Measured scan of single mutants.
Amino acid sequence: DTINITLPDGKTLTLTVTPEFTVKELAEEIARRLGLSPEDIKDTHNGKTLDPSLTLAEYGITPGSTITLEIK
């Protein structure tokens, strides 16, 4: 299953994830792909900052969802 990550420059990154991924694991994968530190990444969905300890499923993030990435 894939989700879309909207980057600060407007580009989109597509990642393969499972509903059990935590937001922290997602940030780590994004950081790895972009050459950043996971601590520099802030993920938001529907205007809410995502708690790193919760899973994508707990936020109702499903395949095809879009998450907005902010760099701290």
Rank of each mutant, 00 (worst) to 15 (best):
D1S: 14
D1A: 15
D1Y: 15
D1E: 08
D1T: 14
D1N: 13
D1F: 15
T2I: 10
T2C: 07
T2F: 13
T2H: 10
T2K: 09
I3D: 01
I3R: 01
N4D: 07
N4Q: 08
N4F: 14
N4T: 11
N4K: 10
N4V: 08
I5T: 01
I5W: 01
I5Y: 01
I5S: 02
T6A: 14
T6G: 07
L7H: 02
L7S: 04
L7D: 02
L7T: 07
P8E: 07
P8Q: 09
P8S: 11
P8W: 10
P8A: 10
P8K: 09
P8M: 09
D9S: 13
D9L: 04
D9I: 03
D9G: 13
G10M: 03
G10T: 02
G10L: 03
K11G: 11
K11E: 08
K11A: 10
T12Q: 08
T12K: 08
T12S: 09
T12E: 04
T12Y: 08
T12A: 06
L13N: 00
L13T: 03
L13G: 01
L13E: 02
L13C: 06
L13Y: 09
T14F: 07
T14V: 13
T14A: 07
T14W: 06
T16V: 12
T16C: 09
T16Q: 12
T16I: 11
T16L: 10
V17A: 02
V17G: 01
V17M: 07
V17S: 01
T18P: 06
T18C: 05
T18K: 07
T18Y: 09
T18N: 08
P19L: 08
P19N: 05
P19C: 05
E20T: 13
E20Y: 11
E20H: 11
E20D: 12
E20A: 11
E20N: 11
F21P: 00
T22E: 00
T22N: 02
T22S: 04
T22F: 01
T22L: 04
T22C: 01
V23E: 00
V23F: 15
V23C: 08
V23P: 00
K24W: 14
K24E: 03
K24V: 04
E25Q: 14
E25F: 05
E25D: 14
E25N: 09
L26T: 01
L26W: 02
L26F: 09
L26S: 00
L26P: 00
L26N: 00
A27K: 14
A27D: 04
A27F: 15
A27N: 15
A27P: 00
A27G: 10
A27Y: 15
A27V: 15
A27L: 15
E28L: 10
E28Y: 10
E28V: 09
E28A: 10
E28H: 08
E29P: 00
E29T: 09
E29S: 06
I30W: 01
A31Y: 11
A31V: 05
A31H: 05
R32T: 06
R32Y: 07
R32E: 04
R32H: 07
R32V: 05
R33N: 05
R33Y: 13
R33W: 15
R33E: 06
R33T: 07
R33I: 12
L34K: 00
G35W: 04
G35I: 02
G35H: 08
G35Q: 06
L36Y: 08
L36M: 11
L36H: 06
L36K: 07
L36P: 00
S37R: 13
S37I: 10
S37N: 13
P38Q: 06
P38D: 04
P38I: 15
P38T: 11
E39F: 15
E39C: 15
E39M: 15
E39K: 13
E39Q: 14
E39L: 15
E39T: 14
E39H: 15
D40W: 14
D40F: 14
D40G: 10
D40K: 10
D40M: 13
D40S: 13
I41C: 12
I41P: 02
I41E: 01
I41N: 02
K42D: 08
K42Q: 12
K42L: 15
K42H: 11
K42E: 10
K42Y: 15
K42R: 12
K42G: 13
K42P: 13
D43Q: 15
D43R: 13
D43L: 15
D43A: 15
D43C: 15
T44E: 08
T44K: 14
T44F: 14
T44P: 14
T44A: 13
T44G: 11
T44Y: 12
T44Q: 11
H45F: 15
H45S: 11
N46E: 08
N46A: 08
N46S: 13
N46K: 06
N46I: 11
N46T: 14
G47N: 07
G47C: 13
K48V: 13
K48M: 14
K48Q: 13
T49I: 12
T49A: 10
T49Y: 13
T49C: 13
T49G: 07
T49P: 12
L50M: 10
L50N: 03
L50S: 03
L50H: 04
L50T: 03
L50G: 03
D51H: 05
D51T: 04
D51V: 04
D51K: 05
D51F: 03
P52R: 08
P52G: 14
P52H: 12
P52E: 10
P52I: 09
P52F: 13
P52S: 15
P52N: 11
P52L: 13
S53V: 05
S53T: 11
S53K: 11
S53G: 08
S53P: 02
S53L: 10
S53W: 06
L54Q: 07
L54V: 09
L54F: 07
L54K: 15
L54W: 10
L54T: 08
L54E: 03
T55L: 04
T55E: 01
T55F: 02
T55A: 04
T55I: 02
T55S: 06
T55M: 04
L56R: 00
L56P: 00
L56A: 01
L56K: 00
L56E: 00
A57G: 08
A57N: 06
A57S: 08
A57T: 08
A57Q: 10
A57W: 11
A57Y: 14
E58C: 07
E58V: 03
E58T: 03
E58S: 08
E58W: 06
E58I: 03
Y59E: 05
Y59F: 09
Y59Q: 14
G60L: 03
G60K: 02
G60W: 03
G60N: 04
G60T: 02
I61Y: 07
I61Q: 01
I61V: 07
I61M: 04
I61K: 01
I61E: 01
I61D: 00
I61G: 01
T62N: 07
T62P: 06
T62G: 12
P63I: 05
G64E: 03
G64I: 01
S65P: 00
S65F: 06
S65D: 10
S65Q: 07
S65C: 13
S65W: 05
S65N: 05
S65G: 05
T66Q: 05
I67W: 06
I67F: 04
I67G: 00
I67M: 05
I67R: 00
I67V: 09
T68C: 14
T68M: 14
T68Q: 13
T68P: 04
T68S: 12
L69A: 05
L69C: 11
L69Y: 02
L69Q: 00
E70H: 13
E70R: 06
E70Y: 07
E70V: 13
E70Q: 10
E70T: 10
E70F: 07
I71M: 08
I71C: 14
I71A: 05
I71Y: 11
I71L: 12
I71P: 06
I71T: 06
K72V: 13
K72E: 12
K72Y: 13
